[in-house]
Design a protein around this nucleic acid. Structure first.
Lengths: 213, 213
DNA sequence: GACTGTGAAGCCATTCACAGCT
DNA sequence: AGCTGTGAATGGCTTCACAGTC
């Protein structure tokens, strides 16, 4: 393997480039330069080229990149040349929103089951999915070959849910609870914290004020 | 000012330390060391100390940090010693979830109005808030002194909404639409992309497989 | 002339290691 | 003895600048 370590920031941007390319493709654009991609997603042209260089040579000097081809490559690299079945735990408002979130489907993700431990919620329908009790998780994972789980439960329940997921063989977790999960190293965990970014904004607004900028 | 530039990663972690400290405080813990914080949130002890050092000396050598004090300091630094009124545009499922998200309230944020341009949604209630037409935005911003807006609309509408927010005086935007907003530099923008983190997971699962790890 | 691919340089964040305090 | 605060060292990401190609 030539590519031993890819910065996570590069993967993040690749995901963003990929969606930008989808838009270009929808608009009938066939060729794009690193400068145009850079402009479109707010990074430097060199950054775009360097990011892509981790994975190969996709462009033509003097010309740029073929949109359709580059889109296909980026999807392939991100592992999105296949459908990914997901399970979700937490049938609250956030869980509901995630279940119906179009952005997941657009990218090849599909939530195949929703779980909750609240008897009031079990049996209810979210779209075409029935909320299931936690005990059903093993068979769902087995049946659909699920590898990734999403946690959308209150903070105090998140650690237990995560451990249950790991016990049942999940390899990766997307955690929406604002808490740090403590799990075996081999489990891939990423957190989406809805208020951290908001706090960066309030910090910056306050910081600017303090500097009279 | 001693602190001229604070890395954004530091601010992010500060937000996380802050919530960890809230938990310790709730549990009656009075003193904590950098090592314990590090353990609790998954970073190195040196990192914790370095992060805090950007803002002052909050600890006692040989002892550690006073939980209540450090909590207060972190909140102050993040600008959370005041209530922040927010407006939200997009009364879809995600907007609904954000409106009712407890994590915002816990941190001093409160959504004071929800807007949409869909006549089907205007007038509906989300909790105690009525969905308002976009034209009402100026007066709401004025009345509540709103400085931050949240965008939870489909990608194709996001840029227009953002520009409208800026035109009406908002200084910062939290964007949930999976698209890069193009706005004046002085506007603080942060994106929460629900599927980027998921794609990092699929990338990593694929990457590991490719390396037979 | 235009644009990619890339080694080298520059810059920034993290880690180290220890002096300083309790 | 224990833990913080911090300059120095390290490591890694980004930018620069240019050779290579069309």
């Amino acid at each position: 393997m030539k590519t031993l370590r890819v910065p996570e920031a590069t993967v993040t941007r690749l995901s963003i480039y990929s969606r930008f390319l989808e838009r270009l493709d929808r608009n009938g654009v066939t060729t794009v330069s690193s400068g145009e991609i850079a402009e479109g997603v707010g990074v430097s042209p060199a950054q775009v080229r360097k990011d892509l260089a981790y994975f190969g040579e996709f462009g033509t000097r003097g010309v740029g990149y073929n949109v359709k081809d580059l889109l296909r490559y980026t999807l392939k690299i991100l592992g999105l040349d296949q459908k990914w079945p997901l399970i979700l735990v937490g049938a609250g408002n956030l869980g509901f929103a995630l279940c119906t979130y179009k952005g997941f489907n657009d990218r090849g993700f599909s939530i195949v089951a929703v779980f909750d431990n609240d008897l009031m919620k079990i049996g209810k329908m979210i779209g075409h999915l029935e909320v299931l009790p936690m005990e059903k998780m093993p068979e769902v994972i087995e049946k659909h070959n699920v590898r990734i789980g999403i946690i959308a439960v209150p903070p105090r329940a998140a650690q237990d849910v995560a451990e249950y997921m790991v016990k049942n063989g999940l390899e990766a977790i997307l955690n929406f609870a604002p808490i740090t999960l403590n799990l075996p190293e081999k489990i891939e965990v990423r957190n989406v914290d809805l208020s951290v970014k908001l706090e960066i904004l309030t910090f910056n607004l306050g910081f600017k004020a303090a500097q009279n900028l």
